[in-house]
Design a protein around this nucleic acid. Sequence first.
DNA 1: CATCAACCCTGAGAGC
DNA 2: TGCTCTCAGGGTTGAT
Length: 286
Amino acid sequence: MPELPEVETIARFLRGTHGLAISRSPHPNGPLGVLGRKFADVQVTWQRSIAEPAAPAFCARLYGQSILEITRRGKFLVFQLEKDWMLIHLRMSGDIRVEPRDENPPGLHDRIIFNFADDARMVFNDTRKFGRAWLLKDPQQVLGNLGPEPFDPELTAGVFHRMLNEKKRAIKPLLMDQKFLAGMGNIYTDEALHLARVHPLEKASTLNYSQAESLLRAIREVLTEGIRRNGASIDWAYRGGDFQNYFRVYQRNGEKCPLCGDNIERIMVSQRGTHFCPSCQLLEKG
DNA sequence: CATCAACCCTGAGAGC
DNA sequence: TGCTCTCAGGGTTGAT
């Protein structure tokens, strides 16, 4: 499941600054990424993978535009083009690879094939068809609703504490709410709450300054570690990284807590599987 | 404002 | 072996 670290890893790979050969480079002696490449014909094999505009217009407008910059905002990949902005959200099972063009039919679960004017192509592969691409004049139309980036220097412990203070919701669904904070998903939320020793059902407004500070530090720590390990490769989704070997609690129910040795439990919180240590993460005030 | 269920999808795993 | 059933999971939408 691509969350912030996985999307960041893919953004770096697409910029050619990654250092890891996730897929074969079409240019052994040239740049690894897709910066500067110009879109040619684009093939859509699942119409609903395109959120906006309709697929024919999406392909037509893309044709001839070069990629100027690639960044990440929350879990969105942001492509700055000459006339438009393209956003891609990988959701549950999306992945992107770059490879030499060939004339073979699309592979299984390839939803969008972006052929470039040179001999390369970029392929959006998405088993569960939840991922989406947008082509927009103003990216804020979609990105405008997002909360702050976890690494934003303006997001200080004091600011974070005030944000938490205004909310009565349970802390876990709040951290996963992209309008509150951008980039956290199920895995990194469970990991951060365990590191900060906060129970997933704790009401956000009950956290004191010290707990808020520690939680923000934990969020940044697990995200940094995730990025350092090129993300986590779960099941069929994105296979670049190995952070899954370093989970503290996620999908480790029944195993020992690395801090205290108690058994990690799994409960449902807001329809999401939630993993925590009942000894380290005590519910203080509910 | 908060909670909740339904929805979108597929493949893995369980049960038979 | 092979069929059918159930379920996870991010984010959006609509109901309460």
